[in-house]
Design a protein around this nucleic acid. Structure first.
Ligand code: MN
Ligand code: MN
Ligand code: MN
Ligand code: MN
Lengths: 227, 227
DNA sequence: TTTAATTATTAGGTTAACCTAATTTTATTA
DNA sequence: TAATAAAATTAGGTTAACCTAATAATTAAA
């Protein structure tokens, strides 16, 4: 039996491992992520190890086993399906959906998930451009890179964001930038890498390098020369 | 702070009190309802009393305070709104909705409830004919009585069911009886009170007295003589 | 009205999920 | 490399939510 707490641990390990593939996932990392203290995590890790959802040692940190990954990907699937449903069907903004999906992802009804996934047209990506795993846990792939890697003149399309905070998403909404929007890099400031971008708005907009690092795009012209 | 467990206790007390207004709600009643043991309930009741959600003594049993009733009615509201949403919007049957709503009722987002309540057209009753409390906890009223009280010749409309079990609801579905269906009582067997009913189906149907006691109806003709 | 049966309550125990403080291990830096 | 700082782990404690078994209080029967 898996409680929502257990689901959250497995999801946390999955997300931390995917966020930085080179770094091992320590108990402390998990503790920070879940906003609890390391001893609590150590205690739970021992249980998850015994249940064969996780392996743990100080060199490799926490790693999901096949069955642990299966559960984690299922929760990620539910989360992203709910986000998409809330966004498309119930008209929530892309900055609001995450918090509610954090709760809805733990509702246990495969039929419900199937139903709402049908209603939204079985999409491959959620409102933040994140891939929705299929029932077997396989992720649709898309090649995306940070907007900050664009060179001057690059024409590209926004396929996602790597930061999901409300403040960042609302900032993009204020700039009138959303998923699938086309951008043209008009200028890159040589001193601080601030971008001047043509968007769907009349006037070009300015964007900090910090923000550009969090926006994931794909070039629209092949061999456009971007890194 | 109220956990889903606390919400379930308060809802249980509300439902038990409403199921039989004359009987006091004992800790044992609550224990049966929640499928836990009486000492566990006693323990929790002490906490709910301290939080001023409940009063408890052996003569009056457990009784909700104003703030306890407020929470209970809010959960009932969420439950019935979700049931209606699942039924109308997501095409679940009236026998499936309860179980999923038991989980969804604990999702904490007023905006989500408001949104789905809008989508379903702000109805007053759920798929079982149960009244949906408004935000202030006020219940729309309807006068209904068991079909078993009908006299021969009575023409009435189904406004609800007092039993919510899947087996009973599926039985009604098999009989082709649903909410808002019109029924005419053609015959009442003098020995066992079995009813012969005209319904939307061509052939009249037979229904046991046991089932008729669980169906709530309203006469369509004034002063039709039913009890 | 005693006795027996039932029901309610208290006593005492377990597990999960959290914590702080102490200790041990590992990594830095002088 | 020895000292120091940082990180990981262990020790020990709390609270909530559950339990069973024992006791006390009611209710029903004889
Ligand atoms: Mn999210
Ligand atoms: Mn997302
Ligand atoms: Mn229900
Ligand atoms: Mn209902």
């Amino acid at each position: 039996m898996k409680t929502y707490r257990e689901e959250n641990y497995l999801k946390a390990i999955y997300q931390l491992a995917n966020h930085d593939k080179s770094k091992v996932v320590s108990a402390t990392d998990i503790a920070h992520w879940l906003e609890i203290k390391p001893p609590t995590v150590l205690e739970k890790l021992a249980i998850l190890v015994k249940k064969d959802y996780v392996t743990y040692n100080k060199f490799d940190g926490a790693q999901l086993t096949t069955s642990g990954k299966e559960i984690a990907l299922n929760i990620v699937r539910r989360h992203r399906i709910w986000e998409t449903y809330l966004y498309k069907q119930l008209k929530f903004s892309w900055s609001e959906v995450h918090e509610i999906a954090e709760q809805l992802e733990h509702v246990n009804s495969d039929k419900l998930i199937d139903r709402i996934y049908d209603v939204i047209g079985k999409p491959d990506f959620d409102p933040h451009g994140d891939p929705i795993p299929n029932k077997q846990g396989k992720l649709p792939k898309s090649d995306r890179r940070p907007l900050s890697q664009s060179i001057k003149g690059c024409k590209c399309v926004v396929l996602g964001v790597s930061e999901h905070s409300e403040v960042f998403l609302n900032y993009l909404t204020d700039l009138n930038i959303g998923l699938n929007d086309k951008l043209i890099v008009e200028q890159i400031n040589a001193y601080d890498d601030t971008l001047k971008l043509s968007t769907k708005t009349k006037e070009p907009i300015l964007m900090s390098s910090k923000a550009a690092q969090q926006i994931l795009v794909q070039c629209l012209k092949p061999n456009c020369g971007c890194r």
